[in-house]
Design a protein around this nucleic acid. Sequence first.
DNA 1: TTCGGGGAAGTCATCGGATGGCTTGCGGTG
DNA 2: CACCGCAAGCCATCCGATGACTTCCCCGAA
Lengths: 231, 231
Amino acid sequence: MPVTDEAIEKIKAMIVSGELQPGARLPKEADLAERLGLSRNSLREAVKALSLIRVLDVRQGDGTYVTSLSPEVLLDTLGFLVDFHQDSTVLEFLEMRRILEPAATAMAARVMSDEDVTALGAVLDSLGEDATLDDLIANDLEFHRRIAAGSGNAVLCSLIEGLSGPTVRARIWRGLTEEGAVPHTRQQHRAIFEAIAGRRPEVAHAWATVHVAGLEQWLRETLGEAGSALA
Amino acid sequence: MPVTDEAIEKIKAMIVSGELQPGARLPKEADLAERLGLSRNSLREAVKALSLIRVLDVRQGDGTYVTSLSPEVLLDTLGFLVDFHQDSTVLEFLEMRRILEPAATAMAARVMSDEDVTALGAVLDSLGEDATLDDLIANDLEFHRRIAAGSGNAVLCSLIEGLSGPTVRARIWRGLTEEGAVPHTRQQHRAIFEAIAGRRPEVAHAWATVHVAGLEQWLRETLGEAGSALA
DNA sequence: TTCGGGGAAGTCATCGGATGGCTTGCGGTG
DNA sequence: CACCGCAAGCCATCCGATGACTTCCCCGAA
């Protein structure tokens, strides 16, 4: 195994074993390199890799630290990964949303605090009739983000956010806007909110399913056309 | 932004834009470094990072290639990330399994091929009464893996595999073995299989939920005791 | 002709050292 | 007590050199 990979494993082991707690500071590059038995250059490759997936946080002029390692932070990487997928697999991601979002919505209807529910409604209200495309995307993102967070499960929340990153969402919204489906979508958002506010998990679950399934079907048809056009 | 991060973004852009197709070979280190305007060392850090998350595949003496970028490959990283989480969040991961596995099991009951269903049954049959702990873990992993794959959604499959990595599973099994819950668990596996073989998605969904929820409750109690013991 | 060995070319792996930039904290000054 | 500047500590980046591994081609033997 390459020295660098070995270093990655060793650093990972130090963290998992508890030797390096979240937030802890690593020895300086030179020392750690010597301890792990490799050059600073190679160590830097390892640190950079762990830094990309948010396990380490390098601050120039200060030092290298272990991040909080919370699900939110680590699963943040998911968004980065999803960006690499093209249209061909977008449907599978949307299918995942159809599984995850209803579950999160139902959970949110049960455990979300009244204040958070109020804030959720405010998000919907904040969108005027003259909203731009970017506004729509941002608002949509914020709405679903709050619901996901309201589920009380950080892993679920991060998964949803990662799988339906801005990239994917932007593309879908662009299409929906062109088809004039915006009012329709906004009505569904409202219905989801009402179900949550009314503390009706089953209804919330159903509306969320309907919402995502609608998107899914629309995308399926669109991709189908595009596919045949390409063929 | 550091040069290395910039390089990561540029390489990512080259891939997303289609300039670098899956399987394509990158220019050699020296050339790419010059093209991106940085040193070989810095470029190597970028490549190493992208290599860790399975976007690039570096083969010594040969060259650097873009991977297939399939969901299976990219979401493989998830397992690596999950390893960093400790007991405190294991429950959240299990809660995710309780959402994902039933969905996958139901889907499998619909679309799995007859051959795959037969093979799935063979997995259960292959486990003798004198199986060791490692056998149990491996068999359990294989059983659930095949079901996840049988859902027909590669993203869902990878997500399940990533979230219930060997690490987490091993710990749970160790505990279950001590409590003599093995026969019970194996009966549930059998019931899940029967439901899939009988093409009854609702039943399969229910059994999978029961199965994971049982684990979840057991773990919740176990952690609760451990937690109070620590306090 | 076919098979296999050997060597050359190409590419990554790793290292050591040197320089520059950023952050932090100490100490001096008003 | 507040502010400013300097020095130390640490990461950022680069250069150049050597070693190791793959691949592929060429040549000789069967």
